[in-house]
Structures are given as C-alpha cells and as structure tokens.
Simulated assay, not measured.
Amino acid sequence: MLSRNAIAAQACAAVLLITTAGCAPADDTKPSAGASASASGSACPAGALDTFTAGKLTIGTDNPAYEPWFSGNKPSNGKGFESAVAHEVAARLGYPAQNVVWTEVTFNNAIAPGPKTFDFDINQFSITPERRKAVDFSSPYYLVRQAVITTAGSKIAGAKTIADLKSAKLGAQVGTTSYQAITEVLKPDTKPLVYNNNDDAKAALENGQVDGIVVDLPTAFYMTGAELKDGVIVGQLPQVGVPEQFGLVLDLGSPLTGCVTQAVDQLRQDGTLAVLEKQWLAGTGGAPELS
C-alpha cells in the first residue's frame, strides 16, 4: 500500500493540471443572487463586514472534519486543504486567525433553507442548481471527481468499467454528490446504502456490508493510503458535462456573498489555491477512469 507521501508525490503533476485548467465554466462560476452587489473594496471593509458576530468571522463545518480537508479534527489549526482555504479567505476579508470562530454544523443543516449560525460554511459542498434555491455559494475553490474504493480481494477490486459495477452493493454519505453519482452514473442493480458520514461508510466496507463506497477523489486517496487495510481505488468516475465544483456556503441572499466570492477569486488568480492543493491534496495519479 502506498504511503501518503508517495501518493502525494505521484499526484502532483495531475494536481497542477487541474489547477491550471483553471476557472470553472462560466455558467457555474457566476455569483449567487447575494453576490450581485458590487464586491469592490468599499463594499467589503476589511474586518468590518456585517458578520454573524461583530468583529468576528464565523465559519461552519461538520464534526468530524475529515482528512485531507482538515487535520486532527481541528478546523481552527489552519491545516488541511479546507481549513487552509477558509483561513486564507478570512485573511483576505480582514479577519486574522484570532478573529475567526469555528462552529459545528452538520452537512445537511448547512445547506437546508433557513437562517444560518455562520458567515460561511466549508465542507466539500458541490455547487448544484437545487442547492442554489436554498443557499448562496461563493465561486468555486476546487474542481473534483468522484471515485469508487474497495479493499483487495473484493469482487469489484478489478473492475475496469461502469458495467463491471452493475451487480455491486455500494454505499455513500447521505445528501452528497457521491451518493448522487451512484444513483445517476453507476446505477447498480442494488439500491445503494446511505450512511451518516464517511466513517460509517468506511466501517461498512471494512465489515463487508458493501462491496465498495463512493467518495471524492482526494478522500479516496487518503482512505486507501492511510486508513483502510489493503485499500484499493477501483477508479474515478467519468466527468459528465460541467466539472463538479466545491463552493463556500452562505445564507441565501447573504450580504457577504460578493465579498467572499471576491476573496476566493483572488486566491485562485494569485495561485494560492494551486499551492494549497499541492500541499494538502492528492491528485488523480493512480486512479484509472472507469469507462
């Protein structure tokens, strides 16, 4: 089994290709409704935005907060890709680490309609038209693929095509695009199983309750390289249409959406996002595409 360092080294070139391929397509990178107002400097006074708590920036994410997006289940430490991105966004908005407050919010609650207890939430939220009806999104900070993982000796370990997975029993976290990928792309004969989080899905795989699980590609590399005994990436799913994109979630019509989007755009344009991807995320090397 590859070490995490070996996985990261193998993947760096692919990460660079992803990041330099660049800005997501125009139809999905446009700001949400709350971002229509000008995001100029005068509209985004540093450290003095209309935040949930005056003088502080409150950022939400789930508990547990998984590797490689976070490190040590401590979002506030600035380690892991999403923790680092969140702190960079906060800094661009004028909120140093001591003025950032992290709050626990479940995945489904963060994207549900209604007032929020955070200024923005970061938790691998894919930007979708359905979710845009309930929340605002920033411009995307990451383009992602989904992948099927299993363990050596599984009946699907040698699968090469989507058709090879037709009879597989698969699982994924509830409410995620990973689950959606099973139902809309893989379409197995058996109804997929749903789990509260990736830890529960991983346990089901280890216990033989499912043949494989679907997760985003960086998580697939981490799980198979550092968490699962004899973990195997079966393959990544084909990219259909517009690439899947992760965005920061804000309250629908939030006055902060434009400012947060501006900060994300700056991080993309000056290369900071590319640097953070290289530092924290494994790329697509070693993950064949299922045809």
Results as ranks from 00 to 15, higher is better:
residue 91 A to H: 11
residue 96 P to T: 07
residue 115 P to H: 09
residue 143 L to F: 10
residue 89 V to I: 15
residue 70 F to W: 11
residue 160 K to G: 10
residue 76 S to F: 12
residue 113 P to W: 12
residue 136 D to T: 09
residue 94 G to R: 03
residue 123 N to F: 10
residue 58 T to G: 03
residue 102 W to H: 01
residue 59 I to A: 00
residue 70 F to P: 11
residue 117 T to S: 15
residue 79 K to E: 14
residue 102 W to L: 02
residue 129 P to S: 04
residue 132 R to N: 08
residue 69 W to L: 12
residue 159 A to R: 06
residue 70 F to N: 08
residue 60 G to H: 05
residue 162 I to T: 13
residue 97 A to H: 09
residue 75 P to S: 09
residue 130 E to F: 04
residue 148 V to T: 00
residue 87 H to P: 07
residue 161 T to Q: 06
residue 151 T to M: 08
residue 105 V to C: 08
residue 66 Y to F: 13
residue 58 T to S: 08
residue 59 I to K: 04
residue 155 K to S: 15
residue 143 L to T: 13
residue 63 N to L: 07
residue 63 N to Q: 12
residue 61 T to K: 01
residue 130 E to I: 01
residue 111 I to A: 06
residue 163 A to P: 04
residue 136 D to L: 01
residue 137 F to H: 11
residue 136 D to G: 06
residue 120 F to A: 06
residue 98 Q to P: 00
residue 90 A to E: 00
residue 159 A to K: 04
residue 149 I to W: 11
residue 67 E to N: 15
residue 133 K to N: 14
residue 99 N to E: 12
residue 87 H to L: 13
residue 69 W to S: 12
residue 114 G to Q: 02
residue 139 S to I: 15
residue 162 I to W: 04
residue 100 V to M: 04
residue 109 N to S: 15
residue 74 K to R: 14
residue 104 E to W: 10
residue 118 F to Y: 12
residue 140 P to L: 02
residue 143 L to D: 14
residue 54 A to S: 15
residue 97 A to T: 15
residue 130 E to A: 12
residue 96 P to G: 01
residue 75 P to L: 02
residue 142 Y to N: 14
residue 159 A to E: 02
residue 97 A to P: 12
residue 138 S to A: 05
residue 157 A to S: 12
residue 88 E to K: 14
residue 85 V to I: 11
residue 59 I to V: 02
residue 73 N to H: 11
residue 92 R to F: 07
residue 139 S to C: 12
residue 106 T to W: 07
residue 110 A to G: 09
residue 112 A to H: 00
residue 127 I to H: 13
residue 72 G to C: 01
residue 77 N to S: 04
residue 81 F to P: 08
residue 98 Q to M: 05
residue 135 V to Q: 05
residue 70 F to S: 05
residue 56 K to H: 09
residue 115 P to N: 02
residue 131 R to M: 05
residue 53 T to F: 13
residue 125 F to V: 03
residue 129 P to W: 12
residue 65 A to F: 13
residue 108 N to I: 10
residue 108 N to D: 14
residue 107 F to K: 13
residue 138 S to N: 01
residue 150 T to F: 02
residue 55 G to Q: 12
residue 112 A to M: 03
residue 108 N to V: 02
residue 120 F to M: 03
residue 104 E to S: 13
residue 83 S to T: 04
residue 104 E to K: 10
residue 151 T to L: 06
residue 112 A to T: 06
residue 77 N to Y: 09
residue 87 H to E: 15
residue 106 T to V: 11
residue 107 F to S: 03
residue 130 E to C: 00
